[in-house]
Amino acid sequence: MSIDWITVAAQIANFLVLIWLLKRFLYRPILDGIAAREAEIAARMGEAAEIRRESEARAAEHEAEIAKLRASRADILHEARQAAEAERAAVLAETRDMLARARVEREAERAEEARRFTAELNREGAEAILALARKAVTDLADETLERRIVAHAVAQLARSRDEVAAAAGDSSEAVVLTRDPLPEEATARLREGLAPILPGVTLRFEIDPTLSPGLSLRVGGAQVGWTVADYFDGLEALLEDRIGRPGGATKSDAA
């Protein structure tokens, strides 16, 4: 039993080489593999834990939602029924309103149509009557109407002497307008009748074929007249007022 120092040195060298070889081919690959696998396992565990947390959170949310839905199902049904009833009532009311409005509109249209028909009928009747009356009076005026108008005018001027005198002011002339020349008798009577009312005022007679049968007196800034058209205008205004047409003006100065 002895120690061979050469062998000892060789064995030390062999041992150091073996350390390097095992480090290169055994420890490093195995430890690196284990570390990589542990890292992968840790990563997968982390992912699994994360997925599990998410799953649990979602499951809790779903359970809460289910419980909430179960709790509120009766309320939702009740609310839905109420909403349906309300909707039904609203639709019915709207339909009734629509029908009522349509009925009212129809009645109004019918009434308006009846009114228009009546008014048209009245108007046409009145115009026919007026035309007949105008024709009849015109036919009669050839003989007596101007005279009667003069007489009437004198009578009216006599009743409103003060207003006429005030309207005449300082005028020295009054113009008498007629459609046809007045008879001598009528002009004389007119001069005679107006002399006390408009003293110092001379009368001048003019013919205007466009005038309606009658007489028109213009003195100063005032004009008064008594023509047949004035009567018929008043009658038309009265008819229009009776049948509801707006704007029927009546001449206040008509007799």
Binding site: I3, D4, W5, T7, V8, I12, F15
Partner: peptide
């Protein structure tokens, strides 16, 4: 071998 054990 004592040489080996001595080396170790």
């Amino acid at each position: 071998s004592l040489s080996t054990t001595a080396a170790l």
